[in-house]
Write a protein that binds this DNA or RNA. Sequence first.
DNA 1: TATTATCCCTAAAAGGTTTTACTAAATCCC
DNA 2: GGGATTTAGTAAAACCTTTTAGGGATAATA
Lengths: 337, 337
Amino acid sequence: MMKRATISDVAKRVGVSPTAVSFAFNNPSQLNAATVEQILAAARELGYAPNPHARALLSRRTGVLGVIVPQSLFAIYANPYFATFLQGIGSLCDDQALGLLTVSPLEGSLTSAIARAPVDGFIIVGLNENHDEVAPLRKRGIPVVIVDGHAHTTTSVNVDDEDGAYAAARHLLSHGHPHLTILTFEPVPLLEAHKASVGANRLQGYRRAVQEAGLEWAAQLVEPSISGVEDGEHCFLFLWEQGQRPTAVLCMSDAVAIGVVRAALQLGLRVPDDLEVIGFDDIPAANLITPSLSTVHQPIFEKGRTAAELLVARLEGDTPAETVVLATELVLRGTTR
Amino acid sequence: MMKRATISDVAKRVGVSPTAVSFAFNNPSQLNAATVEQILAAARELGYAPNPHARALLSRRTGVLGVIVPQSLFAIYANPYFATFLQGIGSLCDDQALGLLTVSPLEGSLTSAIARAPVDGFIIVGLNENHDEVAPLRKRGIPVVIVDGHAHTTTSVNVDDEDGAYAAARHLLSHGHPHLTILTFEPVPLLEAHKASVGANRLQGYRRAVQEAGLEWAAQLVEPSISGVEDGEHCFLFLWEQGQRPTAVLCMSDAVAIGVVRAALQLGLRVPDDLEVIGFDDIPAANLITPSLSTVHQPIFEKGRTAAELLVARLEGDTPAETVVLATELVLRGTTR
DNA sequence: TATTATCCCTAAAAGGTTTTACTAAATCCC
DNA sequence: GGGATTTAGTAAAACCTTTTAGGGATAATA
């Protein structure tokens, strides 16, 4: 394998100093136009381009934004939520000519994933600022924006999860259901332990609506699901087998909700007449299925775009930490009456 | 902004040489266990982690795979085809603990995007090996795998587009349609100019089937669309307004096909009784809409995974160039009789 | 006791660029 | 024609790490 040409190779070829070559690329006005042309020609001929690592070492800039989600890349790219989120980040990267690096913390620790990534700053999704592995980041000078997680010394972008959940639950309760079935990300005690997580906030919203309606927030109202269409499907079928006959289901994600609808149709239920379902997120597929899914809309694209904007701002100047909370909105479609 | 701690800071703190600190991180067996512990403690305290740029400069390894598609990041992440493709690449990155960098060549040239990206190798989608901007890459030592493009000195991964298109056209023709309407990516002459592009190959497949059936390959059989659901929808509505009454439509992408189906239903046509439609790619949404979309399945995930595997192989050893062609398969669902 | 091996650690080079400070020559101005 | 300015280019430091070769103890062996 031929060794890659360096700046000195080009310099030698033309008979100038490496400095001149550097100037030809970055600051041509410092040089005679003819010399610049000569240097560029030689560079082309040798297939030379400045080594990005050397450049980054010096300039502390790579032109890359890092995104960290505590999931495998496989899972991230399979998830329509992240597709839209990354689209938001991507749109800003387009504007600013930045690259977008996704790195998974799973193989090996988060810390090592972060340490190795050649990026200018990180967008961290779903972890709180004080997370054991996030905190060290800030000790080094790396700018961080937290998304879907709690922070008060760092910039964060969140969505009003509690409010959205509250609206959804309230709406279903107004239809007079004797009780609600709530499908969560994880078992409720675990969820409540993760203080201020997305799941905990949504649960809190549901709860508030239930209690306001004068109903009892009993444990049996809630069933843990996980995520993914299949999980939702299996979960509902399981409940049915157990003899439960839900009339209203709240899901913490659209994927799960879509699974529930699918299972219900499979069982011969009419949606929304026999069963009402409300999801969360409003992913594109929510509007593609029949009946179309009622859900809590959150501005996923804007969330990504905003996070990227704030990160870039931090990169450029030393902007103060900001706390952004975007609104959610209940969108009623075909799975509610 | 506090300056980031360097290896010397840690060394000074503990009273050892920088070498010792490096060993503590990369080769602890060279050091007394107690010393290692001391160094690691000091590093933690100072928030030190090795500078990835310096490390990359020396080791020529960043642990990042680059993906280049001649589209904006916005467009890439909006495209379900790429979602699945990136999932394939991502699954390998998970296994190998690599990062995945998407970089858009649009703002500024492809060349500069490539030059700046801190990656170990590139997967380049939709460009031929001899493309003006791809060729220089190979002059420098950077490993490249071409996907959906022609190559003979570099490793490439393709799909049998012509064969898939042929099968789709043949199937529709067997139903006795007087003629087919073909929606292409771009105007046909342009498409044919791009020798050996995905579009050209698919067109050639359609053409072969038409000619084999003894029909005339007339220009009016073909209508340029672009991509995206809306494009397909508008295109079909436009044809209808023009007085055309297609009975069978072949689309070069599922998105366009979904748009066509949507437009047809809107016009009161029965699908597949009044109109048959076959798409291309078999994206997940193809199976979500009603009626479900008949399409040419291509192994998108495997294509990504395979490209990544081959790239990693090139990175490790100097493996010879390979040419992989994956099979396509006609999948008949609800939009064909 | 002399030699060899082992252990723990260090000095220095290498990796490829950008940037600052500076020089030498040419041009300008009155 | 002498000082000031501009032009065109260079030398050397800085960026931060890893790796190679080796040094000085101490322990093991003959």
